[in-house]
Amino acid sequence: MIAWLHQHRDAFLLALRRLTATPLNTLLSLLAIGIALALPAGGQMLLANVLHLASDTAPSPQISLFMSLDAPRAASEDIGARLQKHPGIRAVRFVPREDTLARMRTSEGLGDVIDILTKNPFPDAFVIDPSDDSPAAMEALAKDLKRLPRVEHVQLDSAWVRRLDALLKLGRTGVALLAVLLGVGLVAITFNTIRLQVLTQRQEIEVSRLLGATDAYIRRPFYYFGLLQGLLGGFVAWAIVRLATLWLAGPVGELAQLYSVDFALAPLSRGDSLLLVALAAVLGGLGAMLSLRQHLGD
């Protein structure tokens, strides 16, 4: 066990030595990895900010429930009581048919039309704030409400939620696509760096084998190299996104003030930052593994 730990320590130190042996090459590789990873990471940061902005500034989606025209007031009151107790409903407001008629009569251009009607054409209605305003939850709640007695129509006011949801989905898909493509790029960069390392260390590999080195011993420094390069590239990506956030914070703040919105650009969350760095290290290790399989063989 101690021997194994010594070997890992030696492999790690050797990988560090190889990284620092060619500082310019290492710096350029780290920049390439950093920039590649900064794009999806920056996209994720922007998406999180858009989501935050949307939830802060957009009105809550609502559901309108209309009773049938012949429903007596008692039936409406009964439905009102049920809605108050419904677990999926956060708030409910009753709109009597008389109030709707009066509001329509005062609406420009509608007063004359309303006056010639012999009876009130509007039903009693309820405006409902759901507990969960995700499109799926609202759909489910609407279906549930439609089953109530004397309910004629249930209308979801969630078009904008759907649009925003679709936009966010598009954004997330774009970020995921970018992450996959640039992640493959990172693997390719590491693959090539390790290939060059294997070529330049060919003699050391041969000598080590002759002196009793196992395959694991020979591969270990290369794995550490890939992991370290990925890890450091992840840090560079994080730093790029952080700097970009600081740079954009001023102009975004000014824009938000012009729209009277209280909004400040937030940097990558701690979780996303950790994920970025960890993922970069894993991809570096993967690049090393593929390269060793290809270039060191059996």
Binding site: I2, A3, H6, Q7, L211, G212, Y217
Partner: peptide, 11 residues
């Protein structure tokens, strides 16, 4: 030192 590093000897 190389053979001893390979064998995992304490430094």
């Amino acid at each position: 030192m190389l053979p001893l590093s390979i064998a995992g000897f304490p430094p």
